[in-house]
Computed example of a mutant assay.
Amino acid sequence: MNKHSDLASVIADVSTANGLPNAHYIDPSVFEEEKHAVLFANWAGVGFGKDIPEPGDAKPVDFLGMPILLVRDHDGAIGVFQNTCRHRGMILVDKPQKIRGAIRCPYHSWCYNLNGALRTTPHVGGPGRSMHEDINMDELGLFRIKAHVWRDVIFVNVDGAASPFEEVHADLLERWKEFDTPVHHGGASSSFTLQVASNWKLAVENYCESYHLPWVHPGLNSYSRLEDHYNIEERGLYSGQGTLVYRQLKDQSGAVMPDFAGLSDKWDEGAEYVALYPNVLFGIQRDHSFAILLEPQGCETTVEHIEIYYAKSEADTPELTALRDTNATQWKGVFEEDVFVVEGMQKGRHGVLFDGGRFSPVMDGPTHNFHHWVATQIAAGRDA
């Protein structure tokens, strides 16, 4: 596929559409195009607030080669900056750490505060002279990247051109407004990663639909059957699936995890699983939620960062540690069952006769919705 290939068959109605061509999964040049048009041009997830919990905490992130720095400032707010000094472009922070005083460049010791402002420039005017008339410190703060935190996921818009997160995703924020309460991370067992030999998009596509449950997740399907699910499709925004038979986990004594406060009875046995485009997968249930951040590391490699959250903190519910551990183990097992599928689809994309595939108009609507969105983003990038 070349840069000007026709994506009309992808944008067509689900009843006649083809999926994205093979090149979108195996061609490095297309991967580079998608990096800018799909991931940098939209609100992409790059980290979690729980990884920088205290003022002064900083964590560097390599987002598709873009050096990013996540910082919690003295007011507790999260800021995101390009992780390069404004002097000679040196990387400022190379590992997670507590910033005790200032963000100091290890090359020439230019220093920035936690809000990115340039504060000191030692010897910039010569030995012993920390100022120079041609160096305007007010204009040389760190490059701030547009960021928004929702459900502890840190989203960024690298190119800075996207509308505010609250506007772009107003529909999902409204849909899940009952869950607009603080979330508490479940602790060490509730954090894990999966290394997947697959293009990141295939993880989204698989997550979107429930069609595969009977064959890939027989345990889950034994009580949350295919017919107990419904499609969620919001064109251009997100897609996924919901279930009408969520079964709350109990320990041997019958104890359960506390519910999020103020939920309607819809959530007594309901749950929803949504891919928020481009690269964050969310799940919400009455008593816990999770977020999966997909980190593309290359055209055919992805790391899935999985974090589980609860209505009450570990400190407030120490008696539920074992139950949280069991819950995490169960979810990890479900997510691991999907690995062979996304890796198998990745291998299949090297079949030169594959034409992107077809969709079941009944079962694959959420997946087609994602393909449609990716294709429109690429087309918009080419027209820009």
Rank of each mutant, 00 (worst) to 15 (best):
N2F: 05
D6T: 12
D6V: 07
L7Y: 08
T16P: 02
A17L: 05
E32C: 04
H36Q: 14
L39F: 15
G47T: 01
I52A: 10
I52Y: 13
I52R: 11
I52P: 07
P55M: 15
P60V: 13
P67F: 03
L70V: 06
V71G: 04
R72H: 10
H74D: 15
G76H: 13
I78M: 15
G79T: 09
R88V: 01
I91A: 14
I91D: 13
L92C: 05
K98I: 06
R100F: 00
I103F: 06
W110P: 06
R119C: 08
H123K: 11
E133K: 07
N136H: 03
E139K: 09
E139D: 08
L140I: 09
L142F: 13
I145A: 07
D152V: 02
F165Q: 00
E166W: 07
D180V: 01
D180H: 05
A188I: 03
L194I: 15
Q195Y: 00
Q195V: 02
K201A: 07
L202V: 05
A203V: 12
E205H: 05
N206E: 11
Y207L: 09
Y207W: 10
L213D: 06
P214D: 07
W215Q: 13
V216K: 12
L220F: 15
Y223C: 01
Y230G: 11
N231R: 04
E233I: 05
D251F: 06
V256S: 14
P258I: 05
A261R: 05
D265N: 13
E272V: 14
Y277G: 08
P278A: 12
V280Q: 00
L281T: 08
A291L: 01
I306L: 09
E307M: 08
I308Y: 03
Y309M: 09
A311G: 01
K312C: 11
T321R: 13
D325F: 01
V334K: 03
D338E: 07
D338L: 04
F340S: 05
F340A: 08
K347W: 06
G348T: 07
F354L: 13
F354T: 14
N369I: 00
H371A: 08
V374D: 02
V374S: 03
G381M: 09
A384C: 04
